[in-house]
Nucleic acid binder design. Structure first.
Lengths: 110, 110
DNA sequence: CGGGCATATGACCCGATAGGTATATTCTAC
DNA sequence: GTAGAATATACCTATCGGGTCATATGCCCG
């Protein structure tokens, strides 16, 4: 289970991620909202956790999972070169502004 | 091989797509540039073709493949809800932590 | 026409992985 | 401590997808 792409290839995992995008959830909540067996949820969460997509907070007997979005940036970054295919001149302006913003922040980053 | 996500889960297919992003190529060109066996290239191209990621133009004995980017928009669209995490959230948190770290360094005598 | 190039297809093997079932662990409440 | 909850893990199995090898198809050119 190397790449981020392999992780999100699984539909249930994508659903879990989407659910966590709105707010953090316990395993039981995920289980009920997505109507999938608990062991399956736990397994997918483990994969997501080990790949850095989510992290868990302990709350008594519960584990509350929340998103860790950095991993998805890899996917976003790979996608970047393709975006020019479906963007128009309007988005060109946007990219231009993005670059200017980045340049402006260069000195203060990290 | 249902979803676009499953398609791009394969590293060689991603490489092929990236290559085609710069310009169209014949099978032989892809084969040589990526140093992978021809049958393998053909198989991946078939998968990509049937999933709508690429299309082929016939040029004598060659097939010249070019990108059809619409399929990738599905991925891009799925990613959209997560983008707020790294366009606002993370940067703000990062800058916040940076300031705290700097302040902490100032205070300690190390 | 025949040979050789470019590409596609088919058959087989193999490793990875998701799902299911049963069980283990950890915590709470009494 | 015990019962029962919430969650994790082990194990098995069936499936699926990629690599490779052999072969088929189609096209060009002499």
């Amino acid at each position: 289970m190397e790449s981020a792409f392999a992780i999100i290839a699984e539909p249930n995992r994508r659903t879990i991620l989407s659910l966590l995008a709105s707010s953090e959830r316990s395993v039981g909540e995920i289980e009920r909202r997505l109507r999938m067996p608990q062991t399956s949820v736990s397994k997918h969460l483990r994969v997501l956790r080990e790949a850095g997509f989510v992290e868990a907070r302990v709350d008594a007997q519960r584990r509350v999972y929340r998103l860790r979005p950095e991993s998805l940036r890899e996917v976003d970054a790979w996608l970047a070169p393709f975006r020019r295919f479906w963007t128009t001149h309007v988005d060109r302006l946007e990219r231009h502004l993005d670059r200017m913003e980045q340049a402006a922040r260069k000195g203060t980053k990290r």
